[in-house]
Structure formats: structure tokens, C-alpha cells
Amino acid sequence: MTDITVRALGEDDWQVYRDVRLAALRDAPEAFVASATQEQEFDEEFWRTRMARSRRLVAEQDGTVVGVVSIGRRPGGDERVGELFGLWVTPGLRGQGVAWKLVQAGVDQARSDDFGFVAYWVGTDNGRAVAFASSFGFRPTDSRRPMKNGNSDGEEPDEEMAMIFPLGDDPGSVPSAVV
């Protein structure tokens, strides 16, 4: 496998982010709130505004974007907590360390942005995702919420939990109102 590199996108890279976001929505529509059909209609101003709200990191192989993750602050959330979200890796490279590199870059970005913790919401019934986050060092919390995905078939929504990665010197310190 050719080396995977991860880089942060700037506001002028909005088209790069748009393209990988649309690829993710097409590949895994059940994992996201929006749909590719909705988002492909958004204009440049929308994408630039979205770029300014959070850090966008992409994984690349031979100049091709093969994954994405975002890190930002949840509106109304604890100022010490950065939220990792929108993690996606192209299907052909899953299980080969790309997600790990993206999450590591997201954690590093959160640390340099002076967050004290990183929150990552994971479906409680997604054993693979829970195991991945746990192996990275994220710890489960009691914070739960209904999953916000595009499924609106009338069934009870699945649940997701916040997993926390402390960035400070005391990995046992997790504030009670982190998420």
C-alpha cells in the first residue's frame, strides 16, 4: 500500500471537501443526517461557510482523497470539548489504518486548538466502531442520544453514545457535563 498522508483543508479547499463529503454520503447514506441529493445542490457560499465552522482533514493516497474527518466545537457544548465527526474512508481502504491516521490527526488538531477532550459519537450497536474507538483510547460515557441519520422509516431511532478521549495530563479526568 502506498503511503497515506493526512492534511488539513483550508477554506479555499471547499471543493475538495465537497467532493469527499458527497462520496461519503453516496457510499454510506445511513451514517449521515443529510443525503447526497440534498448536498450536491449547495452552492460555493454554503461550502465555504461549512469549511469555516470546523476543521476538515483528508487522507490522501497518491494525490487522491481516500478519507475525511472533521473536528469542531458543538454549538452550545462545553468549550473544552472538541467533537470528532464525519469520519469516512473509501471502501477499498477500510481496515488498513486510514481511519486511525484520520482520528490521530483529528486528536492532534484538537490538542493544538487547546481542547481538553475529544468527543466521538458512536452507534451503541456498532461493535466495530466501538472497538475501534476503544482501541484508540476513547472511553465510553453515559451520554446517549438518538442517532441522527437519514432513516425516517418510522422505527425507533438507534442510539449512539459519546466516547471521550482526554487530551490533558490526567487521563482519568472527564468532566461530568462533557457532552
Rank of each mutant, 00 (worst) to 15 (best):
F138K: 02
R111E: 07
R26T: 07
I4T: 15
P29H: 07
I71R: 03
A34Y: 13
N126F: 03
K101R: 13
E60I: 01
P75S: 10
V20D: 09
F85G: 01
E83W: 00
D113V: 00
R111H: 12
D78Q: 04
G97H: 07
R80Q: 12
V103G: 04
T124Q: 01
Y120P: 00
V33A: 00
D125E: 07
G92P: 07
Y120W: 02
V20H: 10
G137M: 10
D12F: 12
G116D: 00
L87I: 10
G106K: 03
D19H: 15
Q15I: 13
W100C: 10
I4K: 13
G77Y: 01
D19A: 08
A52K: 11
R48K: 14
L9A: 11
S35A: 08
L102K: 04
P75Q: 04
T90Q: 12
R21I: 09
T49F: 08
A99L: 07
A52R: 15
R50W: 13
T2C: 06
V20Y: 04
T64R: 11
A133H: 05
D142E: 13
L102V: 02
E44K: 15
K101C: 01
A59Y: 02
T2L: 13
D12P: 06
A129H: 04
E30Q: 08
W100Y: 12
L25F: 09
E44D: 06
G67S: 08
A133Q: 08
R50A: 05
T5A: 12
G127M: 09
F138H: 05
G76D: 14
Y120A: 02
A129I: 13
W100F: 14
F132Q: 02
G82P: 08
A31T: 01
T90V: 10
S134V: 04
D13G: 12
G137I: 14
L87G: 05
